[in-house]
């Protein structure tokens, strides 16, 4: 079973930026890119650092503290020191509508 959760609306996360949302005590980073909106666990898999404070470049988000970049589409790190992926969540929204709610599925998968 999976729950659909609402994390603000599209205009909360302009293209090229990331924003942290807290849901049931879990921190989730929503990243808006020219390829769409993506959601990941907001925690670098190398150190316990919020990725949402990092820099977004295309489909990458880079941890500001130690420099690991993650592909926001897959959660896979593209550079060291991180080696394990961060969890990703499917996002449902209409990025063409600033008022569209950002829905994510936090499944039991």
């Amino acid at each position: 079973m999976s729950d659909q959760l609402s994390l603000g609306v599209v205009s909360d996360v302009p293209v090229g930026t990331a924003r942290q949302f807290e849901v049931d005590g879990d921190l989730i980073v929503v990243v808006n890119t020219t390829e769409g909106m993506f959601a990941l666990e907001d925690r670098c898999s190398h150190s316990d650092v919020a990725l949402s404070e990092g820099e977004v470049d295309g489909c990458l988000i880079e941890c500001w503290l130690h420099g690991s970049a993650f592909d926001v589409r897959t959660g896979i790190p593209t550079s060291l020191p991180a080696i394990t992926p961060v969890k990703t969540y499917p996002v449902f929204t209409d990025v063409t509508d600033p008022n569209s709610p950002i829905l994510i599925t936090k499944g039991t998968n």
Binding site: D57, E62, H66, G67, A69, T78, S79, L80, P81, I83
Partner: peptide, 24 residues
């Protein structure tokens, strides 16, 4: 990126491509 040179680069085969900084 040099920090991995004393760690991951000694325990696995890392190429320059894998360590190269992303360039704007």
């Amino acid at each position: 990126n040099r920090p991995p040179l004393s760690k991951a680069a000694l325990s696995s085969d890392l190429s320059h491509e894998e360590l190269k900084f992303r360039q704007r």
